[in-house]
Structures are given as C-alpha cells and as structure tokens.
C-alpha cells in the first residue's frame, strides 16, 4: 500500500446535501451526536443511533467501503476495550469462566455497549472529515471558537496552524514516499530487523524528511510575510460562512435525536413516558 492512500481523515469530494452543509453545522451536529451516544442505554436507543448514522452516510453518498475502511485503524482498540470491560466489570450472572477469568452477563453487555459507542463515534466523525474539505473545516472551527477569544483562546492562530498542518500532511506523505523509494533503490530495508535495527534503518528516511520539513517551513514563513501576513487582526475572507435552510433542518434533526434519546433514558424518572 502506498502511504498516500490512507483514508482516515481524508476529504472525499462530492456534492451531496451533507457536503453542502455549513462546516459549523456539521461540527455542532457531530458534537451533539457524540453527546447523544452517551445518553443511549437500551438496545432500542443504540438501534436509533445506528439508523441515524446509516441514514447520514446514505445521504452523503459516500461509498460504504470507504467509511468502513476508516474503522480499520481502531478495530484493535475496539476489541481491546470490549474485552477489558467483559472481564473486569462487576456482575452476578456468570456465563463463562476459566481459572480466574469470569465473564458475566453484565460485563458482556457493557463490553458490547462500549464497542458500539466507539464505532458509532468514529463513523459519525469520519463522515464529518470525509464531507468537509480541511480548509473549510478549519474555517468553521475558527468561527466557532471566536466567541472564546475574550477569554484568551487564540482562535485565529489555532485555525491557521491547523490549516497549515493539514495543508502539509499530503505533501509530507508524498515526500516520505519519494525518499523511501530513493533509499529503497539504494538497498535500504525498512521492514526487517529487530526494534533497534529498525530504528537505525529509519535514519536515512527521517533525516532528509526533517531537513525538507524545516526548509518548507522556512519558505512558507518567508512567502507569508512577503504577502504581508501579520496575524488575524482585521483580516477579511474570500468566502464568508453563512447558514442556509438546510443547516437549520440538519441541526433540528440532530437535536431531536439527542432530546429523544434523553427522554428514552430519563423520561421514566420524570414521568414523561410510561
């Protein structure tokens, strides 16, 4: 596999309803959805959450395979979390035991629940990054952080740093690919050997990579200053963000989902549902 083919956090261009939403809407919706995940308790509420995520993926017209591929880097964490919960959660109904290991019904439930939560969380946030170009995404973050400027959050600087970092990730991956190829052609071996050996084998890759990163940073700083960049003070932008009708609909839907799940969980206590 080539390094440039990593899918997690990569923009997948398109023109669906989800793609066209304001980035702020998508960020807020993702946060609300994540909160809603922690409201869920019963299989019914998990069903609703899953259906909602599936619907959003469907509307965004992303290939299913691509979205599922985004799960690849974390499936180990998911399984690990599940097992840890399964074996360590306290509970009475032992359904399986071996030596000192006990799996209880409660543990199994909790383990499955955590796994589903993690998967939903990742699926939903990967839809955010798949449907929003990085530049637009940072615009949205900057905009959402602006109110916190009063308490000292450097919104513009943070956003600029993120934009630059995001802008250079593909470039650095490409560079890595190129240098790796060049050293491979000189007989370098990045895959074999023990830990120490491998670390040493990485030097012919890391040294040129750092040098080129510093060179690029230097060039970028000069280029930005040459174009009179002086920080965020009084900067105007080419594309102003603006909410449209679709944004209100989308936000209303996610809010409804969160409220619905909250009612499902706590409604009984307040006597709202039977």
């Amino acid at each position: 596999m080539m390094l440039t083919e990593i899918t997690l956090g990569q923009y997948f261009p398109g023109n669906s309803f989800v793609h066209r939403l304001d980035p702020r809407t998508k960020i807020l919706a993702t946060i609300i959805y994540i909160i809603a995940i922690f409201f869920a308790e019963t299989p019914l509420s998990y069903g609703i959450l899953t259906a909602f995520a599936a619907l959003v993926i469907l509307i965004s017209r992303l290939p299913w395979l691509l979205v599922l591929k985004a799960l690849k880097p974390i499936w180990i964490i998911v399984i690990l979390t599940m097992f840890i919960h399964m074996f360590t959660a306290p509970g009475e109904h032992v359904i399986w035991s071996w030596k000192f290991l006990n799996v209880t019904q409660e543990g199994l439930d909790l383990g499955l629940k955590m796994a589903v939560r993690l998967i939903l969380l990742l699926l939903f946030s990967s839809v955010l990054t798949f449907t929003t170009s990085p530049i637009v995404l940072t615009d949205g973050i900057e905009n959402l952080l602006r109110p916190f400027k009063a308490v000292g959050v450097p919104a513009h600087e943070l956003a600029m740093m993120m934009t630059i970092a995001l802008r250079f990730i593909p470039t650095l991956l490409e560079e890595t690919d190129r240098i790796m190829k060049a050293q491979t052609a000189r007989g370098a071996d990045f895959a074999n050997g023990n830990m120490l050996q491998r670390l040493k084998n990485m030097l012919p890759l890391l040294v040129p990579l750092f040098i080129s990163a510093f060179r690029r940073a230097d060039e970028l700083a000069v280029a930005m200053e040459a174009r009179c960049y002086r920080g965020g003070e009084g900067r105007t932008r080419m594309h102003e963000l603006a909410y449209g009708g679709g944004d209100y609909v989308a936000l209303a839907l996610v809010l409804a989902l969160a409220v619905g799940l909250a009612v499902l969980r706590w409604g009984k206590l307040c006597g709202l549902s039977s």
Binding site: K181, A182, L203, P204, L205, V207, P208, I211
Partner: peptide
C-alpha cells in the same frame, strides 16, 4: 535510480 532532486535523499 537517480530521482528528481536526488540531493533531498542525502542523510
């Protein structure tokens, strides 16, 4: 194989 800008591979 000598790549474009091969000096970038020097380490």
């Amino acid at each position: 194989m000598v790549f474009q800008y091969p000096e970038h591979q020097i380490f």
